[in-house]
Design a protein around this nucleic acid. Structure first.
Length: 435
RNA sequence: GGCCUCGUGGCGGAGUGGCUACGCAGCGGAUUGCAAAUCCGUGUACUCCAGUUCGAUUCUGGACGAGGCCUCCA
């Protein structure tokens, strides 16, 4: 079995060779818990869940470690707490709960470890100390900054050199920086801002630091796969690499870097000002989680995706037809494994799904990608339905049908149709469902 | 301005140097009291211009177009 992934670090499709096949290790950047996760946030969750499942299938369930963090210290969190007059802990706890509820509805596996940034401040402080000691960081004006020029090959992942970064900088450079590209490892906290005591005074970590500290703790100094959204490639992932490699003295942080593409909504960039900002929570009111997931996986993870209502409807139709064909899961056909093994080609896998005729294999293939095959789970939200009334109407319609009173029969069908109820006359009698 | 993706039929979306993608929708048929579901059948494609080649949607160059990143947005 050969797995291939497009590696952002080498900019080529490379064969995947785990450092240790007994323990394949992957890390994905998780959410900053300041508000409901939006549908764009759901993309890495969904596609890298498929990756996790594939790795478990190939290397064995107990031979894959997946770490996905929760960022619970961030200025956006502080701002929300301030705005609503509630504590920071309340914001992070409530949002973390919402996040877990949302992704549970999507049917993704829990990661092996889900570390929180605030529980790893000590590891972060140790890492900053190591960086200062090794000459890769310096203290200035209460801040600790990473000394970018001290790392000759900084910029490998995003393929940019220092001159370009300086020329492209749109933000005014803080006066305490020795070099415009230097970034913050530790910053001072005042007032209501969260903070911890450190050798550099009371303060809090910079945004990039936590992923470096937590990945090292749970996956080691060098591990197999690091994944996240394309927008994180620079500066977040670039800086993670700098921190991790320079503090550990290693040549690589992670062998393979995977980046998922961006998402648009009805052809436009999703933004609060355009009023097309879709949260997972909001979508779940109308659409089953597995439909959201299926819709996501119909596009290859590196491609941009245009998230549309039409696409969701189509996804629901396709999924319903597939689920109707499912039986007890047996073995996953090789065509499905081959497609997923080729850089997580989920659209190809879905196309292959349509070629499978064995009901048990269809179910097994769907299961592998994280679909339940449970028809009840892909029924759209029913709202307020008066079942007794519906059943009474169906009964009188069936009486009319028995009497061959087709006019009355159709009249009742129309009446139910107006209520949003669709009838199907099958061999086992009449069944109904919400349209 | 710099860097990076991408441009396939009505829509979604893989892939390939020459041979049907696939799905949704549409159309025709079977079935059905009528429907729904199901089954069978079916059409149109590879942004443009040059080059390489016996042959390019697929490789190279250019043009045009879309999107992303360029210090905390997945």
């Amino acid at each position: 079995m050969t797995l291939k992934f497009y590696n952002s670090l080498t900019r080529s499709r490379d064969e995947f060779k785990p450092i240790n096949a007994e323990n394949v290790r992957m890390y994905a950047c998780g959410p900053t818990v300041y508000d409901y996760a939006h549908i764009g946030n759901a993309r890495p969750i969904i596609v890298f869940d498929v990756l996790f499942r594939l790795l478990r299938h190939v290397y064995g369930k107990d031979h894959v470690t997946y770490v996905r963090n929760i960022t619970d210290v961030d200025d956006k969190i502080n701002a929300r707490a301030e705005r609503e007059g509630i504590s920071i802990a309340e914001v992070t706890e409530r949002t973390t709960e919402q996040f877990h509820a949302d992704i549970a509805a999507l049917g993704v596996l829990e990661p092996t470890v889900e570390p929180r940034a605030t529980a790893h401040i000590k590891q972060m402080i140790d890492m900053v100390s190591a960086l200062i000691e090794k000459g890769h960081a310096y203290e200035a004006d209460g801040h600790v900054l990473f000394d970018v020029p001290s790392m000759p090959d900084y910029g490998q992942l995003s393929n940019r050199n220092r001159d370009e970064m300086i020329a492209g900088a749109r933000v005014e450079v803080a006066s305490y920086k020795k070099d415009p590209t230097d970034f913050i490892l530790w910053k001072p906290s005042t007032g209501n801002e969260p903070g911890w005591d450190s050798p550099w005074g009371y303060g809090r970590p910079g945004w990039h630091l936590e992923c470096s500290a937590m990945s090292a703790k749970y996956l080691g100094e060098t591990f197999d796969i690091h994944a996240g959204g394309i927008d994180l490639q620079f500066p977040h992932h670039e800086n993670e690499i700098a921190q991790s490699r320079c503090s550990h003295g290693t040549d690589v942080m992670a062998n393979v870097w995977l980046h998922n593409g961006f998402l648009q909504v009805e052809g436009e960039k999703m933004s609060k000002s355009l009023g097309n900002f879709l949260t997972i929570h909001g979508l779940l009111e109308y659409w089953p989680g597995e439909v959201l997931k299926f819709n996501m996986l119909r596009t290859h993870y590196r491609q941009p995706i245009d998230w549309t209502e039409k696409g969701l409807e189509e996804s629901l139709t396709i999924l319903q037809r597939l689920y109707d064909k499912c039986a007890e899961a047996t073995t996953v056909p090789a065509t499905i494994i081959d497609a997923l093994s080729d850089d997580l080609n989920t659209p190809k896998a879905i196309a292959e799904l349509h070629q499978i005729t064995d009901p048990g294999e269809i179910a097994a293939a769907l299961n592998l990608m994280g679909f339940s095959c449970d028809t009840a789970k892909i029924t759209k939200s029913q709202g307020n339905i008066d079942e007794a009334k519906i059943n009474a109407l169906i009964e009188s319609r069936n009486q009319a049908r028995a009497d061959k009173n087709w006019a009355e029969s159709d009249r009742i069908r129309d009446e139910l149709d107006a209520m949003g109820i669709e009838l199907k006359d099958g061999p086992e009698g009449t069944i109904w469902k919400v349209k």
